[in-house]
Design a protein around this nucleic acid. Structure first.
Length: 236
DNA sequence: ATATCGATTATCT
DNA sequence: GATAATCGATATG
C-alpha cells in the first residue's frame, strides 16, 4: 500500500498532501520513466517530488500540476519548428532539465521525454512546498504572513522556478535521474487519488488540446478557478 | 472573483 | 520588429 506523504511543515493548511512529519524514504525516478510519451510521463509525474540539494540543504516540493508538450506536431511546443540551440535539450535524452526564459522575466522548468533524437517534454506548472520553505520564500523575495501565502511560492511555472533558483545557465540540460545531481525527481510513494485533465494555459496555438494534468482538489494548483476543480474537462 | 495591462529580453522571422 | 508555455498590480463587480 502507498506510504504516507513526506515531511511537511505543520503550519500547512488542511486539505493538502500534508499528513504527518515523519521520515519518508524517497527513491530516484529512473531514466526509463521519462522515455515515454509526454502525456503519460506528465500524468505520472503528479505526486512525485522535485528536489534541490545544495551543501546538504534540501528544498523539496510535490508536483501537483504539469503540462505535456509533444514534438513537431504540437504547434504550442518549442520543438514544433525543429531543433534549435535553445530547444536542443527537448531533442536529447530523456530525464533532462529544459529551462527557457520567457516574457523577459521568468524561467520555466521542463523535463525532456522520449528517446534521444525524439522531441517531447513536460512543463512543471505548480508544486506544493514540502521542505525548505524558508529558503523558497527567500528566493522569491516574499515574506510569509500566513499559510495562504504558501501558494505564492510555487503556484505557477515562473514562481516555482524562482523558488528553486532555476536558471538556464545553471540548470539547462541537467540530469534529473542522477543521484549526484543537485536537481532530482524522486518518488516518496505518495498516492494521487484523482487526476484532472484540462486545456493548457497561457498559450495561443493548439490551446484546446487537453494536455494539462493536475491533482484534483490540491490548493497549490495554478490558473483560474474554473480550471482547478472537477468538471474542468475530465477526470481520471 | 475575473479582467486588463505593463514589464522586459531571448529567440526567431 | 514581433512574439512569448508569466507575474503582479490595478480596476471593477
Amino acid at each position: 500500500m502507498p506510504r504516507r506523504c513526506s515531511i511537511i511543515s505543520n503550519a500547512l493548511p488542511r486539505n493538502t498532501s500534508a499528513r504527518r512529519a515523519e521520515a519518508i524514504e524517497r527513491v530516484l525516478v529512473p531514466p526509463g520513466f521519462y522515455d515515454r510519451d509526454p502525456r503519460r510521463v506528465g500524468r505520472e509525474l503528479l505526486g512525485k517530488v522535485l528536489v534541490r540539494e545544495e551543501t546538504g540543504k534540501l528544498v523539496t516540493a510535490r508536483i501537483v500540476e504539469v503540462e505535456a508538450y509533444l514534438g513537431t506536431g504540437d504547434l504550442a511546443a518549442h520543438a514544433a519548428a525543429g531543433r534549435t540551440p535553445r530547444n536542443q535539450v527537448l531533442f536529447g535524452p530523456p530525464g533532462r532539465a529544459y529551462v527557457y526564459f520567457i516574457y523577459g522575466n521568468h524561467y520555466c522548468l521542463n523535463v525532456s521525454c522520449l528517446p534521444d533524437g525524439v522531441a517531447g517534454g513536460v512543463l512543471f506548472r505548480a508544486l506544493e512546498p514540502l521542505e525548505g520553505i524558508a529558503a523558497m520564500a527567500r528566493a522569491r523575495k516574499i515574506t510569509l504572513r500566513g499559510d495562504r501565502d504558501l501558494r505564492l511560492l510555487t503556484s505557477g511555472p515562473g514562481r516555482l522556478a524562482e523558488a528553486f533558483g532555476i536558471t538556464r545557465t545553471r540548470d539547462n540540460g541537467k540530469d534529473f535521474t542522477c543521484v549526484d545531481s543537485d536537481l532530482r525527481i524522486e518518488d516518496d510513494g505518495f498516492d494521487v487519488a484523482k487526476v484532472l485533465v484540462t486545456p493548457r494555459i497561457g498559450i495561443i496555438k493548439a490551446a484546446e488540446l487537453p494536455l494539462r494534468y493536475l491533482i484534483a482538489g490540491n490548493p497549490f494548483v495554478s490558473g483560474p478557478l474554473r480550471l482547478r476543480s472537477a468538471g474542468a474537462v475530465g477526470r481520471r
